[in-house]
Each structure stands twice: as structure tokens, then as C-alpha cells.
Amino acid sequence: MGGRVVVGGEALVDLVPVDGAHHGDPALRPLAPRLGGGPFNTAVGLGRLGVPTSMLTRLSTDPFGDALVARLEANGVDTSLLQRGPEPTTLAVVTLDAAGAARYAFHVAGSADRLVADPGALPGDTVALAVGTLSLVLEPGASRYAALAEREAARGRLVSLDPNLRPGLTDDTATVIARLDAIAAVAGLVKLSDEDAERWGRTPSDLLDAGAGAVVLTRGSSGLAAHTRGGGVVEVPADSVGPLVDTIGAGDSVHAALLAWLAGRDALARDAVAGLDADAWTEGLGVAARAAAWTVSRAGAEPPWRHELDGASRPRQQ
């Protein structure tokens, strides 16, 4: 696969409920740390699918930060763009509902990832920049990632946007929405959930009209839909490779799988994405749906490896 994908955004620790006694109160269920964050999970997913990938973020020098670096490297992700600092690692406390859907409460004050600095010129072989989730909400890093995305789009690189409008993270929603609008206008690909579209107040048609090359909407058990310039609206059902365990990282796996699929078609370019027809999008969405199915079949954000996505092997706990 030619060219590098740079993924910019937060890397954090999810505190995830584990099975066991909770003294009759679900709020007291034991929690276990899991490494995550939307961009971090996307980078890991790309690495597992064999796409040359670099992670751009700022990580703490605490043990959690060391563990995040180690996981990136273990999954083939280049860490030369990482920045380190003494600030704490962002924490996300996860609760799961009866259906396994995840909800998050974030501890972000003064954390390392929101203090990322402008990296300057990206590696010369970079063809795409993926940005998104909390890193586009929390300042001062949010403005730096937004400026980077607009700059790289102007240089002809594909920008892929994954917005995430978590309630309660900011009181200045209007500024966040304006920031997302500006990135979407230059993005070759926007991947978002139906919940994020509702919070953003933008339909896929709105985003296409604003300039996005294509918009992929994740709809949970209802599957995926691509709103495109070259193929109209294309829908595929959700896939399943095993019982649903939890939904942590499912959307990130979709993002990684779509970018890997585009890389395999040598289509990591804005015009190439905009020109894909309905048959191509049916194939790409099918790949992404299978990637999400693998992820939800095991605990935590564990995206599939290439041999899993391509083969008929069954889920295994990581």
C-alpha cells in the first residue's frame, strides 16, 4: 500500500467495567484500564491492517503514556511524531448498558493530549491525515489539529474527519461546530455516527453541499450508509462474526477499515473518494461493517488484524 496515513488526536485510558461482584450496585463494578481514544484506536486498526501509519499526539510520561507508546509500536504504528510531557493521561470512565453500548465520563483537565504542538511538516510520504473525536473539542489542541487539517488539505492531502460531540465536554458548542464545519468543507471523507450527526445538527447532504467528498454514517445495528458524490446513497446491513460483547471502538474500526480499503484501491485522495461509484461503496462499507463486527465481538477496542478481516477465523479474546 503506497503512502502514509497520519492519525492526529487523543490517546487515553478507558476504565472499563469487568465482570465480578459489585456489591449489588452497578456503579461499584470493578474497573480495568484499557488503552484507547478514537484516533489512537484508528491508528492501531490501520496498523493491524498493514497500512503505513504514524500517530500524532502528545502523551504523558506517566506509566499509562508508556503503555500507549508500547501498544502503538506493537501494532506497527510509527511513533516518530509523538510528543511527550509530564501532564497526566486523559481518563475515560466507561459504563455499559444492558445491550453492551458504551457511555463515557471524561477526566481531561490539564491532560497531555490536549497540549499537542503543531508538528510542522508531516512526513514526505504522507497521503492522508485523519483527525477527530475529543481532540477537536478540547483546547488548545483542537485549534492546532483544525489548522493542520486545513493546511494539509490545501497541500492536496486527503483529510478524513471523525467528529465526536460528547455532551458536557464544552460549554462553547458553537465554536466546536464551526470548527467541524470548516474541516468538513475540505475533507475527502467524513465518518460519523447518527448520534454525532444529530448533535452536530448536520445531515450528510449538508456536509456534501459544504464540500465533503463523501460521508459515511454509522447506525449501530442498522448498519452503515455512504452518502456520496459518485454513487448516491449506498447502504449495507450490520455484520456479525460472534456474540456482541460491547461497542467500544466500533466506530474507530469502521474509520480504520475505510481508510485501509481506500489505500488498497490507491484511492487515498479527495477526488478519488468523491468519484467512487455505488458498487465500490458497497464493497467498502461491507469491509467496514465486518471490521466493526470483529471489534464488538470482544471486550474493549480490539480492531481486527488483516488475516481476520480477510478470512473466516472466529473471534478470540485479546
Score class of each variant (00 low, 15 high):
1 M>T: 15
2 G>M: 12
2 G>C: 14
4 R>V: 08
4 R>Q: 10
8 G>F: 00
8 G>N: 00
8 G>T: 02
17 P>C: 01
17 P>Q: 01
17 P>W: 00
17 P>N: 02
17 P>Y: 00
18 V>E: 15
21 A>Y: 10
21 A>V: 13
23 H>D: 14
27 A>H: 11
32 A>V: 06
34 R>L: 12
36 G>I: 02
37 G>R: 01
43 A>Q: 01
44 V>Q: 01
55 M>S: 04
55 M>W: 05
56 L>F: 12
57 T>Y: 04
58 R>M: 12
59 L>M: 15
59 L>C: 08
60 S>V: 10
60 S>R: 03
65 G>L: 10
66 D>H: 09
66 D>Y: 08
67 A>M: 14
70 A>N: 11
70 A>T: 12
72 L>P: 02
73 E>H: 12
75 N>K: 08
75 N>L: 11
80 S>E: 15
84 R>M: 06
85 G>K: 04
86 P>V: 09
88 P>E: 08
90 T>F: 04
96 L>P: 03
97 D>H: 08
98 A>E: 15
98 A>G: 13
102 A>R: 03
104 Y>S: 07
108 V>Y: 09
111 S>E: 12
111 S>G: 10
112 A>E: 03
113 D>S: 15
115 L>N: 15
117 A>M: 09
117 A>G: 12
121 A>F: 14
121 A>L: 13
122 L>V: 13
122 L>N: 10
125 D>S: 11
125 D>T: 11
126 T>Y: 09
128 A>F: 14
128 A>Q: 06
129 L>M: 13
130 A>L: 12
130 A>T: 09
131 V>R: 01
131 V>H: 03
135 S>K: 06
140 P>K: 14
145 Y>W: 09
146 A>N: 14
155 R>H: 15
158 L>T: 07
158 L>S: 07
163 P>V: 06
166 R>C: 08
166 R>V: 06
168 G>R: 12
168 G>M: 09
171 D>C: 10
171 D>P: 08
171 D>F: 11
172 D>T: 14
177 I>P: 02
184 A>G: 06
189 L>Q: 01
190 V>H: 02
192 L>K: 01
193 S>W: 01
193 S>A: 14
200 W>Q: 02
201 G>N: 04
203 T>A: 05
203 T>E: 03
203 T>N: 04
204 P>H: 03
207 L>P: 00
211 G>R: 04
213 G>N: 02
218 T>W: 02
218 T>F: 03
221 S>Q: 13
223 G>W: 06
225 A>S: 14
227 H>G: 08
227 H>R: 09
228 T>M: 09
228 T>H: 08
229 R>H: 13
230 G>S: 12
231 G>P: 05
233 V>L: 10
235 E>F: 09
236 V>D: 06
243 P>F: 07
244 L>I: 07
247 T>Y: 08
249 G>K: 03
250 A>L: 07
256 A>V: 06
257 A>E: 02
261 W>N: 07
265 R>I: 07
268 L>E: 03
271 D>Q: 10
275 G>F: 05
276 L>C: 07
277 D>H: 05
278 A>G: 09
279 D>C: 10
279 D>N: 12
287 V>E: 04
288 A>L: 05
296 V>D: 00
296 V>C: 04
297 S>D: 03
298 R>Q: 15
298 R>G: 02
300 G>I: 01
301 A>Q: 00
302 E>S: 15
304 P>L: 01
305 W>D: 11
306 R>D: 11
307 H>D: 14
310 D>C: 10
311 G>R: 04
